[in-house]
Design a protein around this nucleic acid. Sequence first.
DNA 1: CAACAATATTTGTATGTACAAATGTATAAT
DNA 2: ATTATACATTTGTACATACAAATATTGTTG
Lengths: 151, 151
Amino acid sequence: MNVEEILKTKAKLSIHKKVLINLQLTSAHTGSGMMCLLKRYGISVQQFNVLRILRGQGNKPANLSTLQDRMVNKMSNTTRLVDKLIDKKLVDRCVCEENRRKVEIVITQGGLDLLQEIDPKVEESEKEATKNLSQQELEQLNDLLEKLRSS
Amino acid sequence: MNVEEILKTKAKLSIHKKVLINLQLTSAHTGSGMMCLLKRYGISVQQFNVLRILRGQGNKPANLSTLQDRMVNKMSNTTRLVDKLIDKKLVDRCVCEENRRKVEIVITQGGLDLLQEIDPKVEESEKEATKNLSQQELEQLNDLLEKLRSS
DNA sequence: CAACAATATTTGTATGTACAAATGTATAAT
DNA sequence: ATTATACATTTGTACATACAAATATTGTTG
């Protein structure tokens, strides 16, 4: 369904407006697929991202500010996000010895296990979400999105 | 900045994953511009959308379910969203006479005035947000987004 | 017409998000 | 050593969102 059909408007929309609305619609559409998948494993998209960042760190612990920098959807309160992950025993937190202002966060074995279980499902869901576009169209879309955002 | 740079990952990401992350990033990027603009007028994006839908209705009042159907970002609690607009005296609400389960919502003159004031700023902000792409690239992006979502 | 199902909205609860203020710690300046 | 400043995180508050349950009204069926 195109934008005009969805908004049920008779008015002719500018291409600028159409693109922006389509962006919202499409990102919400694909995002909710991921949300739905992760919910089955009891975690939110944000929590999943934090877990992946921590796994990417190897053995090196991350502090809150690096987590915040690398998250896709920036938001405040990484503290409370990490709290939730601790409740689920997916990460551990302790005060950094060298600089006691900092907090060191590491993924637990349970967290790693969960990620390993989820990974293939995520891959599958990503392929499913993008199945309507060819390889070439995906590259093209990717370039256009990055160009739109550049500056 | 491209996705790999933003995520600071050494791992090679599949084009599927890249497109999906870029979608989130780009939609958040453009969306926050709009949010920022509307905040100056004391309303949220959702509230703005409701106002525009009500204006599009002409004199015909809308009930909650039609509002919910036409909103770009679906969500529950249209009730409380409308409550906020009533507090600001931008819309009115009354019980439908024919079917007393329904609620009729109309935009007030104050709401219409606000929209008229905001409209040109929104147009401007939309052009600004899409200025990196040519007319042709915008059309192309629009088509790709709709194709991605189609099914 | 009483009982039940269907519809439209509201309320409750849990969680997510944004922003400001508060806390605790380290570094620099006097 | 004392004060000031910057830094990293936590807490408080207000609001947004998702989902389930509750309420109120209408329509239907025995």
